[in-house]
Design a protein around this nucleic acid. Sequence first.
DNA 1: TAGATTGTTAATCGATTAACAATC
DNA 2: TAGATTGTTAATCGATTAACAATC
Lengths: 225, 225
Amino acid sequence: MDKKKTRYTVEGYGEVSPAVIKRLPRYFRYLRELIRNGKLRISSGELSEMMHVTASQIRQDLNCFGGFGQQGYGYNVNYLYAKICEILGVGEGFRAVVIGTGNLGRALVRSPMFEKRGVDIVAMFDVAENLVGTTVAGVEVLHMDALEHFCTENVVDIAVLTLPKEYAAEVAERLVKAGVSGIWNFTSKELICPASVIVENVHIGDSLMTLCYELRCLNLQEDEK
Amino acid sequence: MDKKKTRYTVEGYGEVSPAVIKRLPRYFRYLRELIRNGKLRISSGELSEMMHVTASQIRQDLNCFGGFGQQGYGYNVNYLYAKICEILGVGEGFRAVVIGTGNLGRALVRSPMFEKRGVDIVAMFDVAENLVGTTVAGVEVLHMDALEHFCTENVVDIAVLTLPKEYAAEVAERLVKAGVSGIWNFTSKELICPASVIVENVHIGDSLMTLCYELRCLNLQEDEK
DNA sequence: TAGATTGTTAATCGATTAACAATC
DNA sequence: TAGATTGTTAATCGATTAACAATC
């Protein structure tokens, strides 16, 4: 029996460790860069220098999903990129709605981020009557009252939550009931959802605090001298 | 000799593991919440239930920085919050500038994030002549030509990079030369800075991809049935 | 074939959890 | 004092790295 194949298709990805999964998007970014530069093949050693990780880790990571390389040659950049895209669901054609048309919502919709990852933004939602009917980067703003109807009529996989956190829990519940299975949560509200729903939280402020922590360490070091 | 004290002040925080540091902002958030709710004391057990982590981890984490609790009692919420704030540099009065007045830059400046963490935004910078002189949430937009002058005249600790990535490397170098010691980088450009400069990268797109990965796993599981 | 580099196992390292003595 | 809960050590678990046989 083919061990690799087994791990890849039958057992699914469920067994891949969270540490590996968190690194996959970084591979995606570096492979894009390599393709843009016309690079056709790369060894784990070369990639490790670029990414400042060990070659061992790269080979270990990629092998969780199957043998993408070739002994004595390395990895075909385009093939590896295609595989990483497949694993990460780029090209699955996920469809997203953005809840909230504030600064953050608008910034996200206007960024090329979604398109690069094959995610379609199909609508935005807001409660402000004067915004309903307008468009942001070609995406129409609909009224929150139309949320359930829209989500059940159209296939919506992902909801991006950029609304005041007081409404986050209530709206999340509505979304789940309307069949949305992924929530990208930018509010600081901890959401409670069924296990069948994926919630990915973004806490930008935590990143700022990590920076402040490091800065303070730097200052403490200097004070000691 | 007092072991705790030694670890805390003399050896500095350098020895604290990255895993612990990454969790500190989360404690900060939960403690704020507890204070808002008027809670005065909390045990590691109670907090562990709220945060869905083990009580053991909480005690272990907090003890990296000293003994903040009391046997038989638990932790004084206000005292613990004060300590976490101190560790994370809240109240150090860090001063930040935002480079780039696009959607993201504006969204960040308008958010309460900085204020909550005691970081002052003292200016924004852009190259667009028509934006120079305007204000965003009370913060004045200056011309990029004035960057060095401003940073050396005023004390600037942090620069928030929300500009097109083509300019990121060049601007980062200018900032470092002008004495900025922390860079919060929202561009996808990998920055090369001296070791004395802290760079914290934000890759929001990576979070979106993690969500897509999980969604695809979900879909694969369903297909199997 | 010889050289290169993967895939994979085994060894090391670090982080988490369990357990309990110290102590409020 | 008795009960509760921390601080801390020891045990477990998971993730990373090193090493090398397989193989292109």
